[in-house]
Amino acid sequence: MLLIDCPYCGKRPEIEFSYGGEAHVARPADPQALSDDAWAAYLYLRSNPKGRHAERWRHTHGCARFFNAVRDTVSDFFVTTYKVGETPPAEAWPRAAE
């Protein structure tokens, strides 16, 4: 069972959390302006990397807040967790610099 460091509560066992998919996939400001393909890409296409992955978690059975995490999908270890709206340090998640 993973140990997840909620930015609001601290380290808690995985059973208190729910996974929320890839992070930093913002809902388009004006969806109606998007082509079908662009909208489908927003809905369905995710990076699914082997390695560091920025993703959303929710401390459902705790503070109930959503937050972000960088997790290595190979080792299953968390590199960092951070609040919604924050940018992870570039050394934690190289894509942040892109």
Partner: peptide
């Protein structure tokens, strides 16, 4: 409720 919280917390804070 989870869906509403998701939008409220992450899209429209």
């Amino acid at each position: 409720l989870a869906l509403m919280e998701d939008y409220l917390q992450t899209e429209w804070p």
